[in-house]
Nucleic acid binder design. Structure first.
Lengths: 99, 99
DNA sequence: TCTATACATGAACATATATTCATATATTAA
DNA sequence: TTAATATATGAATATATGTTCATGTATAGA
């Protein structure tokens, strides 16, 4: 695998977004089903403000897709590569833990 | 997918390591074949000191495996989940770019 | 032993980042 | 319109992080 900077830099930026535990938890929360901000706040246990800030970054990177319904905003993880990426990395971690 | 903190936190830490472009380039450099620190320095275009600092972090997370041969240290990316993770994420980025 | 080469490490620093607090905006109900 | 609810945003801040510079350690050769 040989990556030029036009691939490497956005790749690193995307990984960086997954590199914060709160933000990663938010992404995982809306991985399989659409969740409102309020639901995410409850599930993740972070403040509403913090969740919104993180959602903004995830939205900007198109890692989640927003949908408005009345006063509520629903968020869903954007495509299936994300869950594949997570699964691969979880496999890696579990292999390391087994040692 | 439902992750407890014992999985989520190491997962985020690992992603964080891939989240710096220099460090990611270092990992990619030794993804398919063992490379000496000097070779990585040349390929990545960062200082020797910086490369060693990053390699230390990658080693601590067992993302690379070191081997000494005389004065040289060879590094190799540790297992195949890493390249799968990279490929998945590259696919994600390329889909986004296509929009 | 002395020198040179390859790599590692500690301190220092500038910048980036996560979080909080206060406040703003949008939508619904009264 | 007014009040209430759901979410977003800007400023401020404490901490984390990437990078450099100087120096240390390990190995090989003379």
């Amino acid at each position: 695998m040989n990556l030029d900077n036009d691939t490497l830099i956005p790749l690193a930026e995307t990984f960086k977004l997954l590199g914060d535990p709160t933000r990663l938890a938010i992404l995982v929360a809306c991985l399989e089903e659409e969740k409102t901000v309020g639901q995410i706040v409850l599930q993740v246990g972070a403040s509403q403000s913090l969740v919104s800030h993180h959602l903004r970054l995830l939205r900007a990177a198109r890692l989640v897709k927003p949908r408005r319904d009345g006063r509520q905003m629903y968020y869903l993880a954007h495509d299936q590569h994300i869950s594949c990426t997570l699964k691969d990395m979880i496999d890696h971690i579990q292999e390391e833990e087994a040692l």
